[in-house]
Structure formats: structure tokens, C-alpha cells
Amino acid sequence: MKRWFSLPYLVWMVIFITVPLLLILFYAVTERTDQGLVFTANHFKQIFDPLYLKVFLRSFKIAFIATLICLALGYPVALFLASKDFPNSSTYLLLFVIPMWMNFLLRTYAWLTLLENNGIINQALELLGISKVQFLYNEGAVILGTVYNFLPFMVLPVYSVIVKIDESVIRAAQDLGANNIQVLLKVIVPLSLPGVISGITMVFMPSVSTFVISRLLGGGQFPLIGNIIEQQFLLTSNWGFGSALSFVLLVLVIISMFFTNMNNKDGKESIL
């Protein structure tokens, strides 16, 4: 088919995807001094300032824990929905997509009503005679918000891979004497890895870079990489440092793309 059909997009792609990413690198390695524009490594060195290093570690810790929880909660959901017990699984899947049609800021904000000191959950606890719990403004609240927002991103890709597993493979394992646990661990889990990898990418990347969830549920006391980037561009105008931080996130993206590609060598599989 006609290759030139893609020409308008190629122009668009170069101007609005490639060039902007190169600009990030450009701002990250240059500095405006009295002698004009000079190359510098200062912005990248600044990342290792203990203050920022702490933020980096916290972001990775929170994203890592949130991704693990999403995997632990989401994998069984995908597994169950793909099983014969759920013949109408497409309706259930829709139930996992529908929340995304409500503004995510509002959904996150609504957790305040549930979790605050006089919130619905604490009032319920009080009725049960249990003392109030401080849910908000700690790392736990940020993790909860992250899991809440990105759990569907884990369920959908894992489900779409598990549902395609050839049933005869599972029956063959059973015929050869494998019990249910063995079938799960030796057949289904290895075959579902491509879905798990894409789920992990889809959850980890937005988690590690969020600045909204930490602002709303962490009360601004637990800044993450995203908050620092926002600050550099909108408050302190230190674009060089902001770009260096963005560049680190970009490298992460490229690494995770490498893993996704390994599972999809000919590029024919749907990756959404």
C-alpha cells in the first residue's frame, strides 16, 4: 500500500515527538553563562544532591510498592475473568474501564472524603468502637492513590494475554498429571509474562512520575520526582535541572520499551 500516506504523520512525529525530546537533552546538558551557552554536567550532578537523591529513592520505592500491589491484586482478577467461571467477562472488563471516564483528579480527590479524620471510613470505625486512624498525608495514602488509579492498567494487558492461552496446552499439562497449582505456576504464569511485563510498564511509569497524587493525598509533604520537575519548570525556572530529571525518566521509558520489544519482535502484536 501507498507508503506516502504516512508522510503528514512523519513530519508531525519529527517536529512534535523527536525534536521536543532532543530539546530536553539539550537543556539538560547546557547552561547559559556570561560566555554564552556552554555544555555542563552540573544538572545531572545536582540529582545526586542528598536532598534530591532522597526524593528519587522515595519515588522509586512508592512506584515499586504500588506496582507490586497492582500485580498482586490485578493478576488474580485477570486470571479469574479469563476462566470459564466468567462467561460474560467483557461486561466485567468494562466495569474496570468505566471509572477512567470520570476525571482522575476528582476520583483521587474523593478519597479525601473517605479517608480524612472525620471522613466516612473513620466515622464507620468510630461506630464500631475502633479508634480513628490517620489515613491521609503519609506515604501509605500516596501508595493507595497510585494503586487506585493504575490498577486497571495491570488487569487489562494481563487479561488479554491469559485469555489467548491455548486451552489444549493446559489440558496437556493436566493429562501429564499436573495439579491445578502446577498448571498455574508452570504453564499459565510463564505464558502470561508478556502481559505482566506490559502491565508493569503501564503501572510503574505513571506511578514514578506522578505529581498530582502525591500533592493531593500526601499533602505536599512527600514530594516525588514529578513534583520536583513541576517545581523546576513552573516555580524556580531552573529548566536545566528539570530537563535532567525528565531525561532520567525518558531513559527509563526507553529501557522498558526494550523489554516490551523483546516479547514482540515482529511488531505485529497489538501493544495497546
Partner: peptide
């Protein structure tokens, strides 16, 4: 290259376009 905006952190996409 087309896949980058899909998995890239939104904040990086936003900042890169702002720089442009």
C-alpha cells in the same frame, strides 16, 4: 518513536512540548 508518547511519563511529554 510513536510508542514513546504512549508509555512516556505525561510530565515528560508535557515539559518537552512546552520547551518546543
Amino acid at each position: 518513536i510513536s510508542y514513546i508518547p504512549v508509555i512516556n511519563a505525561d510530565i515528560v511529554t508535557g515539559v518537552s512540548l512546552m520547551l518546543l
